[in-house]
Nucleic acid binder design. Structure first.
Length: 212
DNA sequence: CATCCGGACAGCTGGATTCA
DNA sequence: TGAATCCAGCTGTCCGGATG
């Protein structure tokens, strides 16, 4: 359930992330500087006031943030202190075989420029993969964020991201895992199986969450 | 000077009501 | 039933004052 405090915390976190105060964020968005003031969030009668979707859209536009990023900032009220910051890697970049975004263990390189908050995730090496094309549409259209956890256990039927030596990055359903290799099925092609040899697989991690 | 607070107000929206 | 009108509630803006 989306709570009043969650939305306001997310706006605070968005401002903080971009080095702004709530009033600074409102001004940058072309709104009145007091639009996001704490004193305006509850009326004198104790009634909750919600920011309009238009105001949120303007704020996101002002700092160049995506709606998915804003959703990622919505947590349990402790988002700005407890939620880990996950590096965000573009899918096209990650798919390049010479891509420097990951090390050999599947951990994102520290040079990744973008980050997002994601509450209640214990894996310190988790990262976000952002779809920047429609290659996985309609399941994962452009802009979808996949949260990938290298520490999560793997099993048949899991949605996984696989990095290979020969063909870059694969995203699909894990059908089978043997000492010789793995079998994957693409999301958009029910009958299409792909076998990947074990020596071709650099790392494989489970998708634990996807923005929709 | 930047930011925040609180009161007042304008404009908009949606629900309720009326009427043809 | 649908259009027109009224009205209450809500959000954003304006403004003056306080604070660090």
């Amino acid at each position: 359930m989306l709570r009043h405090s969650d939305v306001w915390h997310a706006l605070d976190a968005l401002a903080q992330r971009h080095g702004l105060s709530p009033s600074g964020l409102a001004r940058k968005a072309g709104l009145d500087p007091t639009t996001f003031n704490r004193s305006k969030r509850v009326t004198a009668e104790g009634k909750r006031r919600w920011p309009s979707t238009e105001s949120i859209a303007k704020a996101l536009s002002a700092v160049g943030a995506s709606p998915a990023e804003f959703i990622g900032l919505i947590g349990d009220g402790s988002v700005d202190t407890l939620a880990p910051r996950l590096p965000v890697v573009l899918a096209s970049r990650a798919a390049a075989t010479e891509d420097p975004s990951f090390d050999e263990t599947g951990r994102p390189a520290p040079m990744t420029s973008r980050e997002m908050l994601f509450p209640r995730l214990e894996d310190p090496h988790a990262f976000a993969l952002e779809m920047d094309g429609d290659g996985l549409a309609p399941l994962y259209p452009r802009g979808t964020l996949l949260i990938v956890s290298p520490a999560a256990s793997l099993g048949e039927g899991d949605r996984v991201v696989v990095r290979t030596r020969q063909r870059g990055l694969w995203v699909g359903l894990l059908l089978r895992q043997t000492p010789e290799g793995i079998e994957l099925r693409a999301f958009d092609q029910a009958a299409d199986r792909h076998r990947l040899a074990q020596e071709d697989v650099i790392w494989m991690s489970r998708i634990v969450w996807a923005s929709q």
